[in-house]
Computed example of a mutant assay.
Amino acid sequence: MPKSRRVSMSMVAERAGVSGQTVSRVANDSPKVDPETRARVERAMAELGYRPNRAARALRTGRSQTLGLVAQTLATVGNSRMLQAVAESAASRGYALTVLTLGTGADIVDAFDRLRDQGVDGAIVLNEATALARDAASAGLRLVVIDSPPDERFTVVGTDHAAGARSATERLLAAGHRTVHHVAGPAGSFAAAERERGWRQALAAAGIEAPVVARGDWSGASGFELVRRMPAADVTAIFAANDQMALGALRALAESGRRVPDDVAVIGFDDIADAAQFQPPLTTVRQDFDALGEQAVGRLVAWIEGERPTDLLLAPTLIARTSA
């Protein structure tokens, strides 16, 4: 069988009716191509199956067209959804993605060194690794961090977790509950701390002393155990820091014979794909994981191309269902 011939720029140029230089500009995402011509060249690339030679382009431009992504774990729903969003957004811009997970006790400085060795143009750091990112020597590596306090060393893209938690707590108080108990995320998590802060702000604004926090680990099992141990007489409203812990809370309440929302109202956070399928369907705070991934990639690519991007905080949305 004859070996298939690699599609060249000249073949694309002939199909599109343009010069080889124009094809090169499109392949390198140059702004010096009008939209109609760019569309014609991209159509020719797709028809012929043209793939840019990354090694050659890296030599020409000094860029690898590769982004790094660092996460403590990809086991959580939020991180896995953001990974998908980042991967899709990077691919749409012609960038490859290198993923590193840290695990327990991992050294993020070593992770950044590995990314530099691999020649990535910049990196995105997800949620639970942000505290480590602040302590790392990140000079020389462009970083966009998802969910972090502002830091001059990197750009931050995040959800306004405190605002989302306030809206959830205020909804429960407006329904007539004397207080709201909180099943919080793990210590050391920026998102968990911000959600706890928003819960405390809403209670303080209503003149209510915050109950003791029940601290979980994001898992449904932790939500179940924590709520199972709560004194039934004292608890009529629960704000859980994520939907998995809210699911565990629903199970604990059902097993104790308490009805949701008649006896205890429950609100979660994230709006995972199956939140509407819980029993009862879960009222929750939705954060837009697709937008977080898209904005993180967009800002990192802008930085790679020479423009230092600004921080961005996305507003969450309270999704009312029947659990509260």
Results as ranks from 00 to 15, higher is better:
R116F: 06
D110I: 00
I108H: 01
A123R: 02
L100Y: 05
V109K: 14
Y95K: 05
V120H: 02
A123I: 00
V99E: 07
L100Q: 09
A96S: 11
A90D: 02
Y95M: 08
G94A: 13
T98K: 10
D113H: 14
T101G: 14
S92H: 07
D113Y: 03
R93G: 13
D107M: 08
A90I: 01
R93A: 14
L115W: 00
L100P: 01
G122P: 00
S92A: 15
S92F: 06
V125P: 11
I124G: 12
S92R: 14
R116Y: 02
V120G: 02
Y95D: 10
I108A: 08
A91Q: 10
Y95N: 12
D117K: 13
F112R: 03
S89N: 04
D107S: 13
L100M: 14
A123P: 00
T98R: 12
G103I: 08
G122S: 05
A91C: 05
G103S: 13
G105K: 08
A91V: 01
V120R: 03
S89A: 14
D117Q: 11
S89E: 15
T98G: 10
D121M: 06
G94L: 07
A96K: 00
D107C: 14
A123N: 06
A106C: 12
D121G: 13
L97W: 03
T98W: 08
R93E: 12
T101Y: 02
V109F: 00
G103D: 01
G94H: 04
L126M: 13
R93C: 09
A106S: 15
A91T: 09
N127F: 15
G103P: 00
A111T: 04
T101D: 10
A123E: 00
L97C: 04
Q118K: 15
S92Q: 12
D121L: 04
V125G: 15
A123M: 10
V109Y: 09
R114Q: 14
V109T: 14
I108C: 08
R114T: 13
L102Q: 08
D121Y: 09
S89D: 02
G119V: 03
V120N: 02
D110M: 10
T101Q: 08
D121I: 13
A106P: 01
A111Q: 07
S89P: 00
Y95P: 03
G94F: 03
R114P: 00
T101M: 07
V125S: 12
T98L: 14
A123Q: 06
L126R: 09
D113A: 15
T101P: 04
G103L: 09
A91E: 11
D113N: 08
S92P: 01
T101F: 08
G119R: 05
T98N: 14
L126S: 06
T98I: 15
L97R: 04
A91D: 11
G94I: 00
A106T: 11
V109G: 15
D117I: 05
A106Y: 02
V99Q: 06
F112N: 01
A111C: 07
I108Y: 04
G103Q: 11
Q118M: 07
A111D: 11
L97Y: 04
R114K: 13
Y95A: 09
D121S: 13
G119A: 11
D121K: 14
T101R: 03
L115F: 05
F112Y: 06
D117T: 10
A111V: 05
V120S: 03
G103A: 05
T101V: 10
T101W: 01
D107G: 12
L97D: 09
D117R: 15
S89F: 10
A111E: 05
A123C: 06
L126I: 09
D110W: 00
V125R: 09
A91L: 07
